[in-house]
Design a protein around this nucleic acid. Sequence first.
DNA 1: GCGTCGATCTAC
DNA 2: TAGATCGACGCG
Length: 166
Amino acid sequence: MIRPDFFERDSVIVAKDLLGNFLVRKTQGETLRYKIIETEAYGDSKDLASHARHGQTARTKIMWDHPGTIYVYFTYGMHYMLNIVTGKKGIAGAVLIRGIEGCVGPGRLTKKLFIDKKLNGRLLGKKSGLWIEKGDDKRFKILTTPRIGIDYSGEWAKKLHRFVLQ
DNA sequence: GCGTCGATCTAC
DNA sequence: TAGATCGACGCG
């Protein structure tokens, strides 16, 4: 199992390093385990694509919490998004888990793994039933692209903060 | 209080 | 290409 200090780094580094590891979900005695194949990095208040861009609010303050904290939010009236908080406590940052093997899209991923608002603010681990396990194979190529769905963020829309396992 | 719109997905 | 669907956010 990956430890919290793995997440105590810049979100861009963590997003890249998460590829190839396994997202594990345990609910009602059933354990689901999928390889992470797509992530996006979101930064602090100067990242105009990040939820942190307007400072701390009731929803987004979790981005300033301990690294390894689960940040789940509801959007478009129907989808939950799964993020892991990165960086030291007090500095905003998160990695959006956009894709796992055999599943396309961040909204479908959370549905498949029974992830909803109840996990928001919990720490990754056996207790919350959601954690990351180290992948074995590190020999793969990583595709780097701009982030999806954040065209409003001006210059920040161009940043290559999306990572896809090839 | 109220209007706007989103780190999306699906069907037409 | 638009509709679903709702809560966070920002303005007043």
